[in-house]
């Protein structure tokens, strides 16, 4: 009896495994879909399209970008978490959906770690610390002194509650003991206009829209948020270099598949992504976004994601930011 059920069990295992093996060998046999939980033409979308285009060229299968924006990326992420784990649905994740949101929302329709199989980290985008031209401080040290003399009086903008810009500044505030008031906007365009117009004094937002303004002398850059300087503004020091030792934040983007996607497929995608990210035209396009290509193994990405979730959970707790 025992033997028979064991045989049945092993047989059923064999049967259920067989199509998976076949799938893996000739993957991809049909178009692949990359879900983007944000609106078209944003950084997440452009990165997904860039990777998608190169995957199509390499594998001869079309890659469809499926924009499912809304609720800070949660709608699309939840949608992808529930998709069939056959390697034909992928998701472009961000520091928002897989770093900040797990600590920010009390109730989420997905588990950032358990529901997904990490494929590869794709790119890092530093946040840039910029101030209005009327601010007398010439560097970050002077700014900290200036802000100490104006405790509670300065306003900083962010494109929304729980954005990397919001939490990066909260982290900065806890590490320096400064008090500044958060003024949330709907998107970076409003922050940029009010920063130039002097309605707000500073922000530490994702780099791309601010760099041309810095170069035109409309606002001043005091630092970048990552541990390494950005090639887009090599003369601007990092926050850590400029006096706040150990400071590190920023936006990042990565590719994941739903959990239980066959390991071979995940590895194949990961290797291909790493290859694509080394192509010169891809790095050029990423540079336009202020992004640096990363690549790496699924294990490295998994470790990165877990570290980010822990880091932001602490920032959110320390700054008592909470939604819903």
């Amino acid at each position: 009896m025992l033997i028979r059920s064991a045989a049945v069990l092993s047989f059923s295992l064999l049967v259920s495994n067989a199509p998976v093996l076949a799938q893996t060998a000739n993957y991809p046999a049909k178009p692949i879909r990359i879900v983007v939980a944000y609106t078209p033409a944003g950084t997440t979308d452009i990165l997904a399209r860039t990777i998608g285009q190169k995957l199509t060229e390499a594998w001869g299968q079309s890659v469809i970008i499926d924009n499912r924006p809304g609720a800070n990326g949660n709608i699309g992420t939840e949608y992808a978490a529930k998709a069939t784990a056959d390697g034909y649905t992928l998701l472009m994740v961000t520091a928002g959906t897989h770093g900040i949101n797990p600590g920010l929302y009390r109730k989420l329709g997905f588990d950032a770690v358990k529901d997904f199989a990490p494929v590869s980290l794709v790119a890092m985008v530093p946040n840039i610390f910029v101030v209005n031209n009327a601010v007398p401080a010439k560097d970050l040290k002077e700014f900290i002194a200036y802000a100490k003399n104006n405790q509670g009086k300065l306003n900083y903008g962010s494109p929304g509650n729980g954005s990397t810009a919001h939490l990066s500044m909260e982290l900065f505030k806890t590490m320096t003991g400064l008090q500044m008031l958060h003024i949330p906007y709907k998107g970076s365009a409003g922050v940029l206009a009010d920063l130039i117009g002097g309605q707000i004094v500073l922000t530490m937002d994702n780099m791309p829209p601010y760099v041309p303004q810095v170069k035109a002398g409309k606002i001043r850059a005091l630092a970048v948020s990552t541990t390494r300087r950005s090639p887009a503004v090599p003369e601007v020091p990092t926050v850590a270099e400029a006096g706040v030792a150990g400071y590190d934040s920023g936006a990042w983007f990565g590719l994941v598949a739903p959990a239980n996607t066959p390991k071979d497929i995940v590895n194949k995608l990961s290797r291909e992504t790493a290859r694509i990210l080394k192509l010169p035209d891809v790095s050029a396009r990423l540079a336009d976004l202020g992004a640096e290509p990363v690549g790496g193994t699924p294990e490295q990405f998994s470790a990165h994601m877990k570290a980010e979730i822990a880091k932001w959970a602490k920032v959110i707790k320390d700054a008592s930011v909470e939604l819903q």
Binding site: A41, I46, A216, R285, L289
Partner: peptide, 13 residues
Amino acid sequence: GAMTIQGIAPGPQ
């Protein structure tokens, strides 16, 4: 986004 894809940074320049 379209300008960024084309390698043009929208700004005063």
